[in-house]
Amino acid sequence: MTFSRGLRATLLGSTVLVLVLVYTPLALVVLNSFNANRSFAWPPRELTLEWWRAAASSEGARAALGTSVEVALLATFLSLVLGTMAALALRRTSFFGRDAVSLLIILPIALPGIVTGIALNNAFRTIFGWELGFLTIVVAHATFCIVTVFNNVQARLRRLGGNLEEASMDLGAGTFTTFRLVTFPMLRSALLAGGLLAFALSFDEIIVTTFTAGAQEQTLPIWIFNNLFRPNQAPVVNVVAAVLILASIVPIMLAQRLSGSSAGMTGAR
């Protein structure tokens, strides 16, 4: 073993402590979804299933969930395409603008959401003359999701080198055949990791969405925001959040299975 027993125990201890810290508020959310007090006062004096019943019949929540999933899927798809293209382009090339391109891709996530939000809002309305709606949310989300795919793919490409593709080409496969049969399979788990992170980023985004969504479209975070301020609805929001927490295990586990390694989650460097 490389670390002393003491250090390993310390690391284990801090990990357990952090996990407790991370899960206490989440446990509270689940508990509050049963709290009879409408502003979820602590400690709960009375428990109720009323909020779960109300949530089960909330069309608004279901519709918002649907919108969120659609937005996230489309934004993820766009960022997969654009991010992969950019990563492939920058591979083994060192033209002078290379650093500028990397920086440009990072920029939408590195600049505060409110800046991206009002910039896109202003551009959509005044420059493009679009009405804010579903598509504007997708475009905005894809903009800041590209970076997760780009980084994952770039890291994978760097690790792999280009020998297999060279071999494929030398054996007579065309550029597109090589991509389909050689490059893409090698990238698959990196794409999955980047795509999953992009999906998660889009799914819980609220600030940019606030400025790029029309009044009609409600993503789940916007629905939650609105309903936290409707009386009797705030506890319903806790139910929705509790369900989300539990349901989120599925895509994450699935992704882990598919990528076949724990590192797949974070980019398999």
Partner: peptide, 17 residues
């Protein structure tokens, strides 16, 4: 609880301020 007394103001919307 009485739903009817629990009305709410227009404060939905992100620009709720």
């Amino acid at each position: 609880m009485n739903r009817t007394t629990t009305t709410l103001a227009a404060v939905a919307g992100p620009l709720l301020l």
